[in-house]
C-alpha cells in the first residue's frame, strides 16, 4: 500500500504523462519530498518557503489540506491526495 497522488494535466510532463503516482511519507511535506525524488521539480511547483503555494489546491481524502494543517497534515498508506491548480483570475 502507498499513498495515491492525482496529478493535474499541467504537471503530467513531470510524471511521464501519468495521471496518478504513488508515494510515501508521514506528512504531506514528506510525501512531496518522496515524489520529488522520482519526479524532480514537482515539489517546487507546489511548495515555497512559506508552505503550500497560494494558488495550488491540495486535497487529502477530498478535504482541503489547508484545514488539516497544510504541509504538516498527517498522511498514511491508503490515503488519496489530489492536486489541482486553483482556477482564478482578475
Amino acid at each position: 500500500m502507498a499513498i495515491e497522488v492525482r496529478i493535474p494535466t499541467i504537471l503530467r510532463n513531470l510524471t511521464g504523462g501519468e495521471k496518478a503516482v504513488e508515494g510515501k511519507g508521514g506528512t504531506l511535506d514528506e510525501l512531496f519530498g518522496d515524489l520529488d525524488s522520482r519526479h524532480p521539480g514537482l515539489r517546487d511547483r507546489l511548495v515555497d518557503d512559506k508552505g503550500l503555494r497560494k494558488f495550488v489546491n491540495v486535497y487529502l481524502n477530498d478535504e482541503d489540506v489547508r484545514f488539516l494543517g497544510g504541509l504538516e497534515a498527517a498522511v498514511s498508506d491508503g490515503d488519496n491526495v489530489t492536486i489541482l491548480p486553483a482556477v482564478a483570475g482578475g
Binding site: P8, T9, I10, F55, L84, P85, A86, V87, A88, G89, G90
Partner: peptide
C-alpha cells in the same frame, strides 16, 4: 470552456487571468 466575467473592463484576459490559467490549459 472556462468562463468568467469582467464587470468594469473589456472582455480580454488580464495578466492575472493568464497566470492562473493552469487547471485546464487546453
Amino acid at each position: 470552456i472556462v468562463y468568467h466575467s469582467h464587470t468594469a473592463t473589456e472582455a480580454y484576459p488580464s495578466r492575472t487571468d493568464v497566470s492562473y490559467a493552469a487547471y485546464a490549459p487546453d
